[in-house]
Amino acid sequence: MTTPDEQPVKSSTDHVDAAARRAIDDPSAALALLPGVAASIRQDAAGGLFDAWELSSVVDENTREPVVPEALFHHLHAAAGLDATWPAGNAGLVHVYGYLFSLAETPYGLKRERWLDAGLAAAYGERTLFHAEALIGGAVSVTPLARITDAARALLAEHTVREERIGPVRARIAIGRRSASGPFALAYAIDRGAGERLVTTFPISTPAETLAAIDAGPPRLRWNAVE
């Protein structure tokens, strides 16, 4: 059954799909189809929020293919006032906003599903979906990136389950959930010596299996963090 919180996103699904298709050859037109996203990017840039995020490759580590078109990658970074060299971009910009325009299939489904599905939001204790307001259009009081940044930082502060050293780099992994059931949230951040920055956050269903896979090999940069 559709809940009231899901209505804004469900009513915008066609717009998201259309924007993703348009992003292949016309990034500017694609972003115009989701004006709330464009407004949020401008708001985040003005507040310096992208500084809280690390670099991330848009080449998926499972498929070895880009998850967003190169033209869109450059257009988003220009809109945010950020310099970037393909395929390494700002993780907050690419993951939180760029993934909405991705048509790439991965073993875990479409990248944007984490923002449009209730699972990750519930794991973080969010009452509404992360992108609900931004997809409606117009400026928002708290952007999706701001909400996600705060949520991931809180998870790392309260539920760090692994710390790794990769040469001079320190990495932290946190797993937890605030809901009684459903997926858990995983947050990942690294510190290269100038302060910790976020890399990614996504839902997982079985923390024990995820940790077993992490422990099965040596420490390394994970989840598309750039060397």
Results as ranks from 00 to 15, higher is better:
residue 114 R to W: 04
residue 136 I to T: 15
residue 90 N to G: 02
residue 152 A to I: 06
residue 130 F to M: 07
residue 159 H to G: 08
residue 165 R to V: 01
residue 31 L to M: 11
residue 209 E to V: 14
residue 69 P to F: 06
residue 109 G to W: 09
residue 141 S to T: 14
residue 77 H to Q: 05
residue 58 V to R: 00
residue 42 R to I: 08
residue 48 G to H: 00
residue 175 I to S: 00
residue 200 T to A: 12
residue 43 Q to C: 01
residue 112 R to H: 12
residue 71 A to C: 03
residue 175 I to F: 10
residue 80 A to M: 09
residue 182 G to S: 04
residue 93 L to W: 09
residue 51 D to W: 09
residue 178 R to S: 05
residue 207 P to H: 05
residue 171 A to L: 13
residue 102 S to E: 05
residue 18 A to C: 11
residue 206 T to K: 14
residue 187 A to R: 08
residue 110 L to W: 09
residue 221 L to H: 11
residue 56 S to I: 00
residue 139 A to H: 08
residue 119 G to P: 01
residue 133 E to C: 09
residue 92 G to W: 06
residue 85 T to C: 09
residue 64 R to D: 14
residue 38 A to S: 14
residue 106 T to P: 08
residue 8 P to E: 00
residue 83 D to A: 15
residue 63 T to K: 08
residue 6 E to F: 01
residue 52 A to Y: 05
residue 141 S to K: 11
residue 227 E to P: 15
residue 19 A to D: 14
residue 204 I to S: 05
residue 73 F to P: 12
residue 56 S to A: 14
residue 178 R to E: 13
residue 24 I to N: 10
residue 185 A to N: 08
residue 113 E to L: 15
residue 216 A to N: 08
residue 202 F to W: 05
residue 188 Y to W: 03
residue 134 A to M: 14
residue 78 A to Q: 03
residue 211 L to M: 12
residue 82 L to G: 04
residue 92 G to N: 02
residue 118 A to Q: 03
residue 171 A to Q: 13
residue 114 R to F: 01
residue 120 L to D: 00
residue 58 V to L: 10
residue 70 E to R: 00
residue 72 L to I: 08
residue 146 A to D: 06
residue 60 D to K: 07
residue 175 I to R: 03
residue 87 P to T: 00
residue 201 T to K: 12
residue 153 R to I: 02
residue 146 A to T: 04
residue 124 Y to H: 14
residue 148 I to N: 13
residue 93 L to H: 03
residue 181 S to V: 07
residue 108 Y to F: 15
residue 84 A to N: 01
residue 198 L to Q: 05
residue 110 L to C: 09
residue 49 L to D: 10
residue 201 T to Q: 13
residue 151 A to I: 13
residue 195 G to A: 06
residue 27 P to T: 02
residue 59 V to G: 01
residue 53 W to Q: 03
residue 41 I to V: 08
residue 66 P to F: 01
residue 76 L to V: 06
residue 10 K to V: 09
residue 17 D to Q: 13
residue 22 R to L: 14
residue 119 G to H: 03
residue 222 R to E: 03
residue 44 D to F: 06
residue 111 K to F: 06
residue 106 T to A: 11
residue 49 L to S: 08
residue 226 V to W: 04
residue 131 H to Q: 15
residue 135 L to I: 08
residue 186 L to P: 07
residue 16 V to L: 06
residue 211 L to T: 07
residue 40 S to I: 01
residue 189 A to S: 08
residue 93 L to S: 01
residue 174 A to Y: 06
residue 129 L to S: 03
residue 148 I to P: 10
residue 34 L to A: 02
residue 77 H to K: 03
residue 219 P to Y: 11
residue 64 R to A: 13
residue 152 A to P: 10
residue 101 F to G: 05
